[in-house]
Amino acid sequence: MNPLTFLSTTGGVFMTFLTATGRLSLFTFSALYHAVTPPFYPRLIVQQMISIGYFSLPVVGLTAIFTGMVLALQSYTGFSRFSAESAIPNVVVLSITRELGPVLAGLMVAGRVGAAMAAEIGTMRVTEQIDALVTLSTNPFKYLVGPRLIAGVTMLPILVLIADVIGILGGYLVSVYKLGFNPTTYLINTWNFFEVEDLNSGLIKAAVFGFIISLLGCYNGYNSRGGAQGVGAATTTAVVTASILILCSDYFLTELLFSQ
């Protein structure tokens, strides 16, 4: 094989990557600028908050309760080998608030809300509704992207707060009714191990994840091309990229918040 072919292929892939990153960065700056400058659309912000927050509650709640339950069960299996069962409330409260609450809620919301955003905005793009917005003197960034970003950043922490409570409850239920823990001792241990800092770090993560979900949902929808197939591809990309970015940023956020 010609070595130049190899080089040009590598370069091509690299250039594509840089183009995509640049485009997303520009979109992000634009979106942020328009999300915080008037005119605002309170009606749309509330509508998005309901769609992201309220309608995600069943999914996030179910995820949280089963995660808390399995967490208690699994750590019991491990910890009973060296008689450290009493650490279960600690493990549950720490894992849920710091890690599993925000990440699992983020992933579930990415699947539910990120996909819906990409599909809705993508359809608006291919049916010229976004062009129509512009001709009606309305900035699509302010009208479509801004409310979704605001709703994503504010609703995810609230969802995660609820998920934390439900997750810890799940752990409590399994520990008390299946593993035979004393309910009072379990609750006291949970409360003693509970740290506001852990909770806060989880909520900061949640806000970042909410931003990522809304941003990628809007970005992929806004840039979708070519009819139904394009919208389908945009939806998939929105969910996949948001999920990956949630997991990547989770590591770096943990490092950042842990080192403090």
Partner: peptide, 18 residues
Amino acid sequence: LRIMKKFGMLFQGGALFD
């Protein structure tokens, strides 16, 4: 934005906000 206010546009597919 000021110029845009002078314009009206009828799109091919209607482009109504659904």
